[in-house]
Amino acid sequence: MRITRFAATFGALTMALAVAACGGGDSESGSSGGASGIVGKATNDKKLVIGVKADQPGLGLQTGSTYTGFDIEIGKIIAKGLGVEESGIEWKTTVSANREPYIQQGQVDLVVATYTINDERKKVVNFGGPYFIAGQDLLVPVDSTITGPEALKGKKVCSVSGSTPAKRIQTDYKDAQLQQFDSYSKCVTALAGGQVDAVTTDDIILAGYAAQEQYAGKFKVVGKPFSEEPYGIGLKKDDSEGCNKINEILKAAAADGSYKKAWDDSLGKSGTAAPELDTTKLANCA
C-alpha cells in the first residue's frame, strides 16, 4: 500500500514534469454522471455538501455555525427538491477563487455562492439556473461624484482578488487603479476610511453591505449596472442529469412561491420587492 502510493505519487510527478514539458494535461478525473451525480448522491446518502460564501451580508453570511442569506435559502430549496432534509446539508465556506476546484475535486456537490455563469467557467463546471440576474455596480460614499464606471478614471477601486469584477476593471477600465483584498469587508472598510473611492462587485452584494447597520447612511450603490451577472448553481461538468433537475426545482420554486419567500427571508428584508425568476432562461446545462 505504502509502496504503491509512493509509486503513484512518483509516477504522477514524473508525469507532471512530462506534462510541463509538452503541455496539455487534461485530467479525466471527473466521475461520470448518472448515479454518481448529485441526484444519485441525494437519493442514496440523503446528504449534500453545498459551497456558499461566508462573508457576504444578505447573500451568504456565516453567523456562528449557521449560515444566512439568499444563496443559503436557494441552497435549501434545491436540497429539498432533491429530497435532502435541511439537517442533511453540510454548508462549506468557499471564496471566489476556489469554487471551480471545489466542484472539480468533489469537495462540494453544489456551489451557490454568487457564482456568475460565463463561458470560461462553463468549460470546467456545469451551471443550473440562473436563479438571479445581478450586475456589476459601484458602492461609493453618499457624497461621491462617481456616477458610473466611466467616471472611474484615476480613481481607486477595490474588489476581491481573482473575482470577475476585479478582472473587468483590469481589462475594461484600465484608467482606474485596482486595490485587491481577499474579502469584501476589507474593501468596505477601506472605502469607509477613504483609502479607495469605490468598491465594485455585483449590485446585490453591495446592497447587502450598504444595508449593514454600522454603514447606514454612509454609502450608496450607484445603480448603473455595467454588466449582467447571471447567478448559477455550479456542479460537476458531466452531471447534466443533476443540472436539469436543478432547473426543474427552480421552475417549481418560482411557481409555488418558495422562490419569493427565499428572497423575502433574506435580501427582501430591506424592503426590496422580490424579482421575477425568468424560467425561460434556465438553459445553461451542458
Binding site: 461566508a54 451580508p57 476556489n98 469587508s185 476589507k186 447597520e213
Partner: peptide, 25 residues
C-alpha cells in the same frame, strides 16, 4: 490557511466577525 479558506482564527475572528459587525481593525 486563509489562502485556502481554512476556518482558522484569522478567517473566523477577522473576516467573519467583520462581515457581521464591520469592525475589521
Amino acid at each position: 490557511g486563509y489562502i485556502i479558506s481554512y476556518s482558522e482564527l484569522l478567517q473566523m475572528g477577522v473576516n467573519n466577525v467583520a462581515a457581521n459587525f464591520g469592525n475589521v481593525v
